[in-house]
Nucleic acid binder design. Structure first.
Lengths: 132, 132
DNA sequence: CAGAATCCATAAAGATACTG
DNA sequence: CAGTATCTTTATGGATTCTG
């Protein structure tokens, strides 16, 4: 493999570039919730259901480094920090909106296929057929 | 935790539902390329740069099970199989389009931040500061 | 409140070799 | 051509404990 001397990632397409920024389980959700309202850390954590401190902080830091979110520390005690989208982040949130709408429009169908997935992942894979 | 008796996944929002379908490194790209043209397996593999057979097949199967893509096997020899989007898949591809556009519009900026990321991930993390 | 640090289990992804 | 199968590595995520 020698070394990858291509400094620029050279994306195959726009979508490829976008995915480098928001791929992952939490980032799209974080950006989306921040587009609804700037949020203090704790609120954001409650909004993004199921996320842990570790993941939320980690993803927020990456988004901050990537110029998507801005972190403001009020340096008060008890601590108060809030996160807002940068202009770049807001434009990204806009691009995310159709995905939200798609999910809403097709939620029933999505729910169905996911339920089926969980079924056969719950099956022992050798479900002994009942005597025939 | 007892057992999770909630059969329906109960999404927190539309975006959450969407992500259950296309989360991952490859699925958005697969759906996108299939929206440009239906593709034979080999062509798709070349289009989605860097994907392995294992991943491509795996993701295609899931997308098929989720009603996003349709697989047509011509049962010829040598084998010929092509993949197309279902109507649901086409609507999803439409929702993905703004993300493509965002990536294209901001490709330079995205390239910059990614290059920076790779820099400090290349650094030994204990770059001995030069004697002060 | 807003994190940081550590440990651990699992899932996603990659490499390689093989097949009808 | 269009996959399978197996193995290894890496990334993701969760639980817990700790701190200013």
């Amino acid at each position: 493999m020698a070394e990858n001397s291509s400094i620029e990632p050279s994306f195959t397409c726009g979508l490829d570039a976008t995915l480098r920024i928001i791929a992952g389980k939490w980032k799209p959700l974080i950006v989306y919730f921040l587009s609804l309202s700037s949020n203090r850390y704790g609120e954001l954590r409650r909004a993004v259901k199921g996320v842990s401190d570790k993941m939320l902080i980690q993803q927020l830091k990456e988004l901050e480094a990537d110029g998507i979110v801005h972190r403001h520390d009020y340096k008060e005690v008890p601590p108060r920090v809030d996160y807002t989208l940068t202009p770049l982040g807001r434009s990204l949130a806009g691009a995310l909106a159709p995905l939200c709408a798609w999910g809403s429009d097709n939620m029933v169908e999505v729910g169905r296929v996911l339920a089926e997935r969980e079924q056969w992942s719950r099956e022992p894979a050798d479900a002994q057929l009942p005597v025939a």
